[in-house]
Design a protein around this nucleic acid. Sequence first.
RNA 1: GGGCGCGUAGCUUAGCCUGGAUAGGGCACCGGGUUCCUAACCCGGCGGUCGAGGGUUCAAAUCCCUCCGCGCCCGCCA
Length: 576
Amino acid sequence: MAGITKSAGSAGLTVDAESLRAQLDLEGGAESDIALPVHRLAQGAGRDPGVLAATLAEGFPPDPAIARVAAHGAYLNFRVDTPRLAAATLAAVLGLGPGYGGGPPTPARACVEHTSANPTGPFHIGRVRNAIIGDTLARVLRVSGVPVTTQYYVDDMGRQATMITWIWSMPRDAWPAPIRATVEGEEVPGEKPDRYRGRPYPAVSAYLKEHAEAREAVAALVRAIETGQAPAEHHALAQQILDGMLSSLARLHIHFDEFVWESRFVADGSVDRVLDRLRAAPHAMREENGALAIDAAGHGLPKESTRVVVQRGDGTSLYVTRDIAYHLEKFARFDRVIDVLGQDHQLHARTLAALLEEIGEARRPSFVIYQDITVPEGGRMSTRGGSAVWLDQLLEEAVSRARKEVLTRREDLPDSEVDRIAEAVATAAIRYHVVRVAPEKPVVFRWEDALSFEGRSGPFVQYSYARASSVLRKGGADRPPYPFDAALLTDPEEAALVRTLAGFPRAVAYAARTAHVHTIAGYAHELADRFNRFYHAVPVLKSGAERETRIALVAAVRQTLGNALDLLGIAPLERM
RNA sequence: GGGCGCGUAGCUUAGCCUGGAUAGGGCACCGGGUUCCUAACCCGGCGGUCGAGGGUUCAAAUCCCUCCGCGCCCGCCA
């Protein structure tokens, strides 16, 4: 940087280092590691860009970090000094270990709320994107130095959960026939509770559409729950189904720090306090039947959704109102509040923000919105339409395929090890497949894509990690120290690998700043890819004087790959 | 109708915030590579009007406008 300003100075230009920095291309191209297009400078000075680039290259003072400067057309290309970069990078990776890529601790506490699926049945693929994005984001923020608490908001207040209680609190012979049919005949002993208890749900939902008296019964139950008169089994049913869903998520290495039950905000009076504030809000209005609404026009909501009802005519609360209470609590405990939401909740998010403004609350959550996972036939995955694929089904299929893959290449492993590897490979494939796409892009669920173990996949990264582990193992270099002489790393593949390694902290910082966690998946693939190329091009254990140094490089790759896998919630494998 | 998002080779995806040099991967397809550290790998090839049109700019996949197509939402559901 200083070199450029100096060179520009001797060429008779004054340049602002700040604006110059913004123009630098840090990724570089085929010819460079760092590039500077000089068009803008040339234009400002009324010079010819090509000539100016050449002049600047000529006048560039020697810099130990820069091996070579050359003008190429209107571009100034810098090649960094590989040994120097390698020395710094290897020292950082090997010195920091699991901490490489992370940031210093920061005091601002964050809450990441994600998943929060209603406890009404098994977890399906349509919901898994939320869980994977949310969990990955929490991991990325944590290593970036942010103290993160993850929360799962359990809706035990709404109609959905109430429908489960309604049906299960009735004696079985009192169930309407079409609903009863869903649990009879194919009842499986020992079936997961989410599956078993969720079985009647689609039928109940359909039944209610046709039967007003059943709808009224459910509404009465909602009122009872609201006033603390919930049937004894209400909470236990929700907990059972939740436990079933959580055991599936646990296989994807997704866990939560806290579970926040929605009913709490009704029970502790905070919803009432929110309603008091809403009643006093500038745009509150009372509907004919006693319902309370807010005219939220002027808060930037789309035209036809400005009248927001916050309390039903029968006095019961609504989801958005309870959500305000929940957010007020989050604001009291955390400095940053992040909600991971499907795009179908987009309007809810904006409504929430509008209502927070209505009651004079200055703070807002930030939202990570992702598009749905759809089925190939079109449309979202639906339990009722029978298009839902359960996460458990996907896991089962993935494990069975992974097992087959392991067995075709490893006959030497004990069964327990095969199982362990198959499970790890299966979850890697699923997590990677879901997280690799930018959240704003829609994803169509296809079995063959979700179960891919090669190319741009989780298992590919795991494989590279296992390969690096194998090299270290065979080289008798399982543990530090890893002495190295960076001056020996002169092969182009080594240089490229070092540059990729050096880019990890930047990749993590970017993901943390933008919540675009899919970029970590891209980085992991890039590093694995570079390592595989290096592996094929350059001998490690069979090399001569470079052996120690290359072993150190492999150790650094293994460490960084491991750190990236950890961010993705994927288990590293020493062998596979 | 309104709001939000998306549209990049046969399929899939990165890049868009912060405009720069021949738009980067993967799958599929074609051709190679294993007496050698794990072939879930590597090398080469094929394949692109970056949805369409206009504008801004020395320079547009990227910024602005219009249009087209697809998805979601517009409940006293969550």
